[in-house]
Design a protein around this nucleic acid. Structure first.
Length: 243
DNA sequence: CGCTCTGTTAAA
DNA sequence: TTTAACAGAGC
């Protein structure tokens, strides 16, 4: 029978599920303490030359950030008459939704504006946008960089709880080379949970998500483990269920 | 793994 | 009100 696996984050008050193990591992970095996150973050390559303090857990976000420093705006609007360009693809998406909703002239790569006979017509007035030097100036200004985590929502603050770090360490402790599976019947769903197949059998993969320790080896040193009590029974779960 | 996308926020 | 910058999830 075909199976689907969901990889569940069992950090208290989280419970997020991911179809991919790697996505769970990535997610779980968000539960680390601020200090440990700092160790994992990618640092802006312009830090030394500009004083930029930006650092991020996801490398892809850094790639986008770097465009601020270089002034690169590789994400260009494909509307035939629009010259909008952005360094952040999300900005281009928002631009398109706002200014060219369901626009049939949108073509891949903006080829329309390359056609002979293309007539420039002013698009909707876009108040563009900081120059690269403006942005750089702001990024490197002497004012303190804003601290986003300081104004995190209550829910996020909860997720930043150091307990989450303990949990991750214990997950690594519980790692085993091969799956340890437990099977149990489900006669009825837990309250508030929609179980469409009341008698289906769930298979729980008791392995913690292996990428956690692999991705953050420096967080798993013996000294760090020394004051961690075992809570292997609360390992992350992979729920495997019939399709 | 890397690109893409969405939603949030500060600041203009 | 609009947009740049961003965090984090989707694929």
């Amino acid at each position: 029978m075909p199976e689907a696996t969901i990889h569940i984050c069992v950090v208290e008050n989280c419970g997020m599920g991911f179809s991919r193990r790697g996505d769970l591992a990535r997610h779980q970095a968000t539960h680390l303490s601020e200090a440990d996150k700092e160790q994992l973050k990618h640092r802006c390559p312009f830090a030394e030359t500009t004083g930029c303090q930006y650092a991020t857990l996801q490398k892809g976000n850094m790639n986008i950030h770097v465009n601020i420093h270089t002034g690169a705006k590789p994400y260009t609007c494909s509307h035939a008459t629009c010259d909008f360009a952005a360094g952040d693809p999300s900005q281009l998406n928002k631009h398109k939704r706002r200014w060219h909703p369901d626009d049939s002239t949108i073509v891949p790569g903006g080829a329309a504006k390359q056609r002979p006979g293309f007539r420039e017509k002013a698009p909707a007035p876009l108040k563009l946008k900081k120059t690269a030097s403006d942005v750089l100036q702001r990024t490197t200004s002497s004012t303190a960089p804003r601290d986003r985590t300081a104004r995190a929502s209550p829910a996020l603050q909860m997720m930043l709880d150091p307990e989450a770090e303990l949990f991750l360490l214990e997950s690594a402790d519980a790692m085993s080379p091969s799956p340890r599976r437990a099977r149990f019947g489900v006669s009825d769903g837990p309250e508030g949970m929609d179980v469409t197949e009341p008698d289906s059998e769930l298979e729980v993969d008791l392995r913690p998500p292996s990428p956690t320790a692999a991705a953050f080896p420096h967080l798993y040193s013996p000294s760090r483990r020394s004051n961690i009590s075992s809570r292997a029974s609360q390992s992350p779960m992979d729920l495997v269920f019939p399709l």
